[in-house]
């Protein structure tokens, strides 16, 4: 299910997908392999001043290592700092000067007051619930739809399979921004504009996810299917009992990216939802910003409410996020 370098414990079907994709943790996988013989003895290291070895067994001088950490901390400040500044702003009380120069980085008297005020200003918890509903629905439909379609593209034989594959490739290449007006028209005709169902539907089975699943199923050894056939398993049984458990990893990736995509989406909900009682968090946040931008504390609290669940999810499932990007983009 993961690309973790634990060759001994991996169950037989999973490595078929894992092995083909050197994930971002790739260097870790090579650990101790090719370099074993080249590693200098401890004497050699001592002779040339302080040296360290990294996880791959490569030598690195103390100066280079320190330089690396300085750079890493610099980039860290640039990437995570803005989030922390937003968090700090959201915790500053109404009497604290948020415009002070030089700036005060920590709230003098941290308070959750702003979070309560956001809830008084916009129905932020309703919006969060809407976002959650949309995201969960999107996860379910994407997992089911993409697994089914991916399986039929990869493991069943019939006339028209090539054409079917082409349909999904074309669908993936069509830029969403270009069809959004027509999608809005379709939703109006179906009377689904201004509903959460209307938000979910266009992205409920992403063509890219179908192709990801197809790829995962293709990598399963064919012998497994043959053995199941001998036992008289029909297509549905082969799908649910044999193929699906073997591609859990990819399925998890699809689930995570479906959740993130639905939770973070802005343009489509902005177009399809017009009634402010139906907003998702992103659209609600934009509304909050537009209406109450004179108080950055309030907007900051709203932004933290919107981003905190995803950061938590990310911290828990970091490896799967990275694998998804690796699988989606790097091939050959």
């Amino acid at each position: 299910m993961t690309t973790a370098p634990t060759p001994a414990s991996a169950p037989p079907p999973a490595p078929a997908t894992a092995r083909r994709r050197p994930g971002p943790s790739g260097p870790a996988g090579e650990r101790g392999g090719a370099t074993g013989g080249r590693r200098p003895g401890p004497e050699a290291a001592r002779r040339k001043g302080p040296r360290f070895t990294d996880g791959d067994g490569r030598r690195i001088t103390a100066g280079a290592l320190a330089g690396r950490y300085v750079l890493l901390l610099g980039v860290l400040l640039l990437t995570v700092g803005p989030f922390l500044w937003q968090l700090s702003t959201s915790l500053k009380g109404p009497t604290e000067d948020i415009y002070s120069s030089p700036p005060s980085f920590l709230p003098a008297d941290p308070t959750l007051h702003n979070y309560a005020r956001v809830a008084d200003t916009i129905p932020v918890w309703d919006y969060a619930l809407n976002s959650l509903l949309v995201a969960v629905a999107s996860v379910l439909t994407n997992c089911v739809g993409a697994a089914l379609a991916g399986y039929t593209l990869a493991r069943l034989r019939y006339r028209g399979r090539g054409l079917l594959t082409l349909v999904f490739i074309v669908a993936m290449l069509v830029p969403v921004e270009g069809i959004i007006i027509a999608q809005f028209q379709t939703m109006r005709e179906l009377h689904l504009n201004n509903t959460l169902l209307g938000v979910v539907l266009p992205g409920c089975v992403g063509a890219m996810n179908v192709l990801l699943m197809r790829n995962a199923f293709l990598n399963l050894p064919v012998e497994v299917d043959e053995a199941a056939l001998m036992d008289g398993a029909n297509a549905w049984q082969r799908f649910t009992r044999i193929a699906l458990p073997a591609v859990r990893g990819t399925l998890a990736v699809v689930a995570i990216f479906a959740f993130m995509g639905a939770w973070d989406d802005f343009l489509w909900p902005l177009i399809v939802l017009s009634d402010s009682s139906r907003f998702t968090l992103t659209v609600g946040l934009n509304y909050l910003h537009g209406t109450f931008s004179n108080d950055p504390r309030l907007v900051a609290a709203g932004a933290i409410i919107a981003v905190a669940p995803l950061i938590l999810l990310f911290v828990c499932l970091q490896r799967l996020f990275f694998r998804g990007v690796g699988e989606g983009a790097v091939k050959g």
Binding site: V144, A146, R155, Y158, I179, T186, P202
Partner: peptide
């Protein structure tokens, strides 16, 4: 491996195909 009813593959593809057709290809 071909032991399935003729329409089975299309049943599998149906949800994905319907979404692609209705919300991507048709709007396009």
């Amino acid at each position: 491996i071909r032991r399935h009813l003729p329409f089975t593959p299309w049943l599998f593809a149906l949800p994905g195909l319907a979404v692609a057709a209705a919300f991507v290809l048709y709007p396009f």
